[in-house]
Write a protein that binds this DNA or RNA. Structure first.
Length: 402
DNA sequence: GTCAATTCACATGAAAGAGACCACGGTCTAGTG
DNA sequence: CTAGACCGTGGTCTCTTTCATGTGAATTGACGA
């Protein structure tokens, strides 16, 4: 494309009408006016939380269900409704929503409490104070604000994983010491076995009430997608069967509505980029591929150098040896690599953990096997599609400066 | 041939260290009236 | 006299290292048939 061509391109781009009308509707943080197919759950949440309107402390509530089953949405929806009623009637209710996984706002005890305090409009330094001090600050602000606090902790399993369950224990116990305020916790987790790993005391106090969110089935997903698509896209741009296929894809892996919406959105983008005026079924496959690739690239880009070096070693190794690789081989290769690029090599112990991390991300596949007399090790294969590896490799070469 | 002991090459755990970041309080310094 | 610069102390947090212990089956070697 010459430079003249570029201008033409932009002009025709502008002239061409977008297939989207309101793309935000498909974005994950969009909040619809109505939550579909979750009436039951929402009613249950409302039932549990209603006492707050009479200034009584609601039971602690625990919501669980797989990803994309509408937990967060339902919780936010219900608390928003309560909040708006409370505002009309002048009832002092506060809702704090904290996602324990998102960015690093709240993955330790200190940070969580600090974050809550910040939400109560109290300035708390990011670090430097003893944890106890932060608790005190939180205490006094909460008590002086005289309200019912609904604390929504999304992805609470992440928090407990990293910070232990004392945090929750402490939070539930606070009520005893508060005089003018009350706090109740709404925990949200997509790990169904999460409560099993909790200390029994914590478990019983956290899940005074439990609500299980079932995954959406394909029909429900279709309904949701259709409703959103009606607003998100212009009329008649979605070809027959597209919605159905998106729903089917998402239903296949545990009815994740978020995934379904993303798929639909990216399909639209793919269609638009390739100059089509309609979203066709083929675009879905392309979109799925794209989403996966972008996910992997994003993960790798944001990893620390050591992790990247490890992955690079794995890629080089699998090229020469084909098939499976073992931890020892990787460590040797990795040490060599460190020498050439001037990186301080880590111990094998640490590398072992890094391999585990890469496995968690789904970039590689590591299985512990025993080779009998020849020891015990991890058997590692790359689980990124072959077609992506060259691209991956060049990305790594670039960031590692090889 | 059978069976238990041995052995390998790491996996997995726990604990502690290094170094970055930060708040707080005390001391010093320079500018001001 | 006071605001700001500059320590030292004590705190959190992440990434690592060090030390210790665990592990599962191929191999080995003793044993008996």
């Amino acid at each position: 494309m010459g430079q003249k061509g570029l201008i033409n391109f932009f002009e025709s781009y502008l002239q061409r009408e977008s297939i989207f009308r309101e793309k935000t509707v498909l974005q994950p943080n969009y909040k619809p006016e109505e939550v579909l197919h979750r009436d039951n759950e929402i009613n249950q949440i409302a039932n549990v939380l209603a006492p707050a309107l009479r200034m009584e402390k609601p039971s602690n509530l625990f919501l669980y269900g797989k990803t994309g089953s509408g937990k967060t949405l339902s919780a936010k929806y219900t608390t928003d409704e309560i909040l708006s009623i409370a505002k009309q009637r002048d009832i002092p209710i506060k809702v704090i929503y904290i996602n324990c996984k998102l960015s690093k706002v709240a993955d330790t005890e200190y940070r969580l409490v600090a974050e809550i305090a910040r939400n109560l409009n109290k300035v708390v330094p990011a670090t430097g104070l003893p944890t106890e001090e932060v608790y005190k600050i939180f205490f006094s602000t909460l008590d002086s604000s005289q309200c019912i606090l609904l604390l929504v902790l999304d992805e609470i399993d992440q928090l407990v994983n990293k910070a232990g369950d004392e945090v929750i224990y402490n939070l539930t116990r606070i009520n005893a010491e508060l005089k003018k305020s009350q706090i109740s916790i709404i925990g949200i987790s997509n790990d169904l076995k999460f409560t099993d790993m909790l200390d029994p005391r914590v478990k019983s106090s956290l899940s005074e009430e439990e609500i299980l969110f079932h995954a959406y089935n394909a029909i429900q997903l279709q309904h949701i997608l259709k409703t959103r698509a009606k607003r998100a896209f212009r009329e008649d741009v979605i070809m027959e069967g597209v919605i159905e296929k998106c729903a089917a894809y998402a239903a296949r892996d545990h009815g994740d509505a978020r995934r379904a919406l993303e798929l639909l959105r990216v399909s639209g983008e793919v269609a638009e980029r390739s100059g089509k005026t309609k979203v066709e079924i083929e675009h879905i496959d392309e979109a799925e591929d794209k989403i996966e690739k972008e996910r992997i690239m994003e993960i790798i880009k944001t990893q620390p150098k050591q992790q990247q070096a490890t992955l690079y070693s794995i890629i080089t190794l699998q090229k020469n040896s084909k098939g499976v690789i073992f931890t020892g081989e990787i460590y040797d290769e990795y040490k060599e690599l460190c020498k050439t690029i001037g990186l301080r090599p880590l111990t094998q112990r640490r590398l072992s953990d890094i391999i585990g991390e890469l496995d968690m991300f789904g970039i590689i596949n590591a299985k512990v096997i025993s080779k009998g007399r020849f020891g015990r090790t991890r058997e590692i294969t790359i689980s990124v599609p072959q077609s992506m590896i060259p691209k991956l490799k060049s990305l790594l070469q670039q960031v590692l400066d090889v």
